[in-house]
Design a protein around this nucleic acid. Structure first.
Lengths: 144, 144
DNA sequence: GCGAAAGTTTAGCATAGGCTAAACTATATG
DNA sequence: CATATAGTTTAGCCTATGCTAAACTTTCGC
């Protein structure tokens, strides 16, 4: 074990990035749901399981289960067999997410990628963009 | 159910982005491990559980479990109580990942974000960047 | 206003990725 | 060379996110 007995004080610092990624992942599904619910309410007046399931491309039961978690997180409210509503926190998360999403998507477009790719890639990227990077993207859009 | 009885043919298209994100997620841990194993082999001649665990910031047992999956995926090989090696596919994935990672990180730096943020954000972003977007980033770096 | 269709929920299963604690192996040093 | 220490593995637990199939409600149309 000679090789590893050297101390590496940078290990903890390195691991921070991976910890952030893992934290991002557990938050990101919540953000996607909440954004989608907000969109549905805006577009059609109410958000329902089936619509969320279709747009996310998952089974109905999966949506039901996840909504339970979002309820315990205080992001959505719901009565059995009724439509889904956002709490204050839910709306805030949705608005923040949509703003962030728009910046990332427009940034990718400004960078020269196609509409289709911008839409797809921004969906994955938006959850891993820090405030600092988001600001840099916004600045780039302005001076473009 | 009046509201939702309208057909929405765009739903399937919309859901594609989310499906890609889910697929990315299941691939991304594998990429992180494989890249890290390659780094360790380069830096110190061998890759061991403990080092991977420290750098990723997870428990040892978690690494062992994940390595089993990577073995069944044909990315790594390992004898009990011995160091970890990459297969040909593993090296390829590691090289591709490192190249991609470097482009994203340098791109963020060129965009004006700090070293620290570039390092952290690139870790999350790299797995959600398509070939097209990666090319656009590389192009931006050239004309910068 | 009743029955069929549409939508929601529950139950039960699988996989992935975390964890701790305990058992086991290999190595390094006295 | 015996043993302490460092490293690895196993066992067993948890949560999150998927799925299908079956049960249950609501609503629409006749």
């Amino acid at each position: 074990m000679a090789l590893s007995s050297r101390k590496r004080p940078t290990a903890k610092i390195r691991s921070a990035a991976f910890k952030r990624v893992r934290a991002d992942h557990s938050a990101e599904l919540a953000e996607d749901y909440v954004e989608m619910i907000a969109d549905l309410i805006d577009e059609r007046g109410e958000a329902r399981c089936t619509d969320i399931a279709m747009r996310l491309g998952v089974a109905n039961a999966t949506v039901v289960k996840t909504l339970k978690r979002l309820q315990t997180l205080g992001l959505v409210t719901q009565e059995p067999y009724r439509a889904i509503f956002l709490t204050g926190d839910g709306w805030k998360m949705a608005d923040d997410g949509k703003r962030k999403h728009a910046v990332v998507e427009n940034f990718l477009l400004a960078l020269g990628v196609s509409q289709e790719t911008a839409r797809i890639d921004s969906e994955g990227i938006e959850h891993h963009v820090s405030t600092e990077t988001l600001r840099a993207m916004a600045k780039f859009l302005l001076r473009k």
